[in-house]
Write a protein that binds this DNA or RNA. Structure first.
Lengths: 352, 352
DNA sequence: CTGAAAGCGCTAACAG
DNA sequence: CTGTTAGCGCTTTCAG
């Protein structure tokens, strides 16, 4: 038999509303009565029913977290940061794995809304149609997007500086002397990947004597990375460096390389993105672009929480986190055909 | 303005109760009226309020998942399996990270109960006191434990055959000729680790000419594994093999070995437990005991769901999954002092 | 088959 | 400061 407010009101010989006030620690209740109520609640082991409370207050004290797949260590880091921040604010986190499937995504959102979540955190609205985005925009609760610019919609966003990251990766590889570089990324329309790609392409195009960069698209998973790399290795022997749009893809490249007897970094250099813990453990250790995953998750719920308190109609916040290149063992210097060109440039510089 | 049942009742010119029945697809409502109601609901974009429904039905259609840390790839696999099963049954999953902290754990449980979750899935009640376990046992919702025998409490359980796994690891290492083997594990009282340890010790004790096995305890994380291994390498140069209680600890050993210039497997062999995806990627690839993580998560919620439907007072189910050793590159054959002994045995066998 | 009414447990005016 | 009174949105008897 569950203990309700009514029970403790009776026990303390007061009205339920008084009991409610006493327990919610509000003003307007005599110290003595409060004591009495608190004691009764204690004695009976009272636990409030949050559904009932939620029904009247309209808040559930829970937020939805929609990621493509929690098994991706990137998302488990983000999720942990998010959950810690939620816990600190006494909010619960409802975990949803969308697999980037628009139907699943929208079904999750609707279900979260039916449960009256106070806010939604989501990874990718990539696959969503305009109507679906519009539905989200007016759903009545604040939404913050992870790693995706909000575009014209009133969503808050928290992102790593994906453009700069892509650019740094590109510049690094170009600086190492690579002239034929491939980029392995996810399917088109994936927001953060698009920015990484742009940054990378800009860096490559700024290099001299570069072969036109090759962009290969596939699943952004270990399996996908492996498949893309197999294709690349067999069809494009000329490329000497790869920029993988995330570490997990990079790990797939490592697997494919081992399979096909291509040495990394001797035959081909590899740069990843995310700086997962496992980068240091794989062989060779993966050079990558670091982004603060845990902090992104935390910041995302903090921003969401602020907006929940302030109201959906307040203006959305945006936060971008810097990224840095972490050098490990997956890249080598190269002196390809353009070596002379570089030497000449060096001479020119010395004369100045 | 949110659309309620009342709105659609008015729109369809029926009573709310009729609308309710029509929408819940129940018997006892004329086909025509049902059509009318469904059409109205469609037109107005009606979405039921699950808090209100839950308040009367007493069910929330959500279950709590309590793990120590979702960043551990073991748990993200389990969580994904669990979430998929929950999604299939239209249940939501509330993610909680306990860090094995009893205070946090109990706070989560209480908060879940206040939210009226229909069931709880938890990883470890290790640190819980007897009273806390008792509280859980009578909390009113079914509980299923992951990787932990239920003991005397009425919890369902889903576990890998941890004893056999530990035993297989031990036998494998003994069979390879190792005579001084260490076991790196978590702190005492961690259910599944205890069984792995027993299995391992039994295997070692069954070996001939074995040095007494060394058991070192610490955090069951990469950091912890690293620390334990550092200690081991510096204080016990005689050990030639390590059984890590899980892969993550094993990864820590790899890191420590690299740091201290100990070669794995040439100087010391290493076996892990879990068979995480990253085992194949680390260097050297980790030999380990495979357990079906995704399936464990899925089975756990399926069992939980069955019990939710049948009632808390039904008898708990128990399911154990088999494990297998996966050979990779982290182990070497050894011919230590006891080589003669083995040779002698071999001769003896040949004569038979 | 359908409507009326009660109530899930709680909060929030509104009087007193 | 405290009690009374309404609901929140829904399901579920209970009559009709």
């Amino acid at each position: 038999m569950k203990i309700t407010l009514k029970d403790i009101a009776k026990e303390a010989a007061v009205n339920v509303s008084t009991a409610s006030r006493a327990l919610s620690g509000a003003y307007g209740v005599h110290a003595d009565t409060r004591e009495k109520v608190l004691a009764a609640a204690q004695r009976l082991g009272y636990r409030p029913n949050l559904m009932a409370r939620g029904l009247v207050t309209g808040r559930s004290h829970s937020i939805g977290l929609l990621v493509s797949d929690i098994r991706n260590p990137y998302f488990s880091e983000v999720a942990r940061g998010a959950e810690d921040a939620a816990f600190a604010a006494s909010f619960d986190l409802i975990l949803c794995n969308s697999d980037l499937n628009p139907a699943k995504q929208i079904r999750y959102v609707r279900s979260l809304l039916e449960k009256n979540v106070d806010g939604i955190l989501m990874n990718s609205v990539a696959a969503l149609s305009a109507e679906q985005c519009a539905e989200l925009a007016v759903c009545g609760v604040p939404v913050t997007l992870l790693n995706k610019p909000a575009g014209k919609y009133p969503f808050s966003t928290v992102l790593a500086d994906n453009y700069q990251g892509g650019r740094q990766a590109g510049e690094y590889l170009v600086g190492l002397g690579h002239r034929a570089i491939a980029h392995l990324t996810g399917h088109r329309g994936h927001g953060n990947f698009a920015d990484r790609c742009r940054g990378f392409l800009d860096a490559v195009q700024a290099g001299e004597g570069m072969a036109p960069p090759l962009v290969i698209r596939g699943e952004h998973t270990l399996r996908g990375g492996c498949e893309m790399a197999r294709k690349l290795f067999s069809q494009h022997p000329e490329v000497t460096a790869i920029f993988a749009a995330n570490d997990v893809i990079g790990f797939g490249v490592l697997e494919a390389a081992a399979e096909m007897n291509r040495s990394i970094p001797d035959d081909v250099s590899l740069v990843g993105f995310d700086n997962l813990e496992y980068c240091a453990l794989v062989h060779p250790a993966l050079t990558t672009i670091h982004q603060p995953k845990y902090e992104i998750g935390r910041a995302a719920v903090e921003i969401l929480l602020r907006r929940i308190r302030a109201g959906v109609d307040t203006i959305p916040e945006h936060q971008v986190f810097g990224v840095t290149l972490i050098e490990r063992q997956s890249c080598c210097k190269r002196f390809p055909i353009s070596a002379q060109l570089e030497a000449a440039k060096a001479q020119a510089l010395e004369k100045v």
